[in-house]
Computed example of a mutant assay.
Amino acid sequence: MARELVGALPDMFPDSVMPVLLQAAILVRENKACRAKEILGQFSEKFPDKSKVVLLTGAQVAAGAGHTQVVVESLSKIPYIQHMPATIATLISLKERVGDIDGAIAVFHSAIQWWSNAMAKDNKLNVIMTTSSP
């Protein structure tokens, strides 16, 4: 019943995020994470300005259902959060959990490169790298 009701909402509100999020939540709950990921991906491609909330919520829904790979894929599609410490730690942990050690290392190296470039621009890297003596 819930699926039928939620299924009608995207036609009624085609540019609204909420119906898509509800559909994805139901699909993940039904153990159809791949279909949920597909629906979220289609919406985020159609409405890129709303993709952040769709992908973050999709990651949260998938995490609650224990679908680690969907979480990784959702977070990896949001480029401007890839360098944030919380995202880095989350992605590394999740990739390790699914056995993708090379992927975890790649996330770490990418973050190091991003922060090295960002900090070198203002010569801030030296501030972080300098050790203080007692």
Rank of each mutant, 00 (worst) to 15 (best):
E4A: 15
V6Y: 07
G7K: 05
G7I: 00
A8F: 05
L9H: 11
P10E: 03
M12A: 14
F13K: 13
P14K: 05
D15P: 01
V17L: 15
M18G: 04
P19T: 10
P19H: 07
Q23A: 11
A25L: 03
A25M: 02
A25P: 00
I26A: 05
I26P: 02
V28D: 12
E30A: 07
E30M: 04
E30H: 04
E30V: 02
K32P: 09
K32Y: 00
C34L: 07
C34T: 10
R35T: 12
A36M: 06
L40Q: 06
G41Y: 10
Q42L: 07
F43Q: 00
E45A: 08
P48F: 01
D49A: 15
K50S: 12
S51T: 06
K52Q: 06
V53A: 11
L56E: 11
T57R: 09
G58C: 08
A59E: 01
V61T: 14
G64Y: 11
H67E: 15
H67V: 02
T68Q: 06
Q69G: 03
Q69S: 13
Q69E: 13
Q69P: 02
V70Q: 02
V71G: 03
V71T: 00
V72I: 15
V72A: 11
E73I: 07
L75M: 15
L75V: 09
S76I: 03
I81F: 06
P85H: 11
A86N: 06
A86V: 04
T87K: 03
A89Y: 04
T90Y: 06
L91R: 14
I92H: 05
S93V: 09
E96W: 08
E96D: 12
E96C: 11
R97G: 01
G99S: 06
G99D: 11
D100N: 11
I101D: 00
I101W: 10
D102M: 00
D102E: 10
D102F: 05
A106Q: 06
H109L: 09
W114I: 08
S116R: 13
S116H: 14
N117S: 13
A118W: 02
A120V: 01
A120T: 12
N123Q: 14
N123G: 13
L125I: 13
N126L: 12
N126D: 14
V127A: 14
V127P: 08
V127M: 09
I128T: 03
T131H: 10
T131C: 04
T131A: 10
S133G: 13
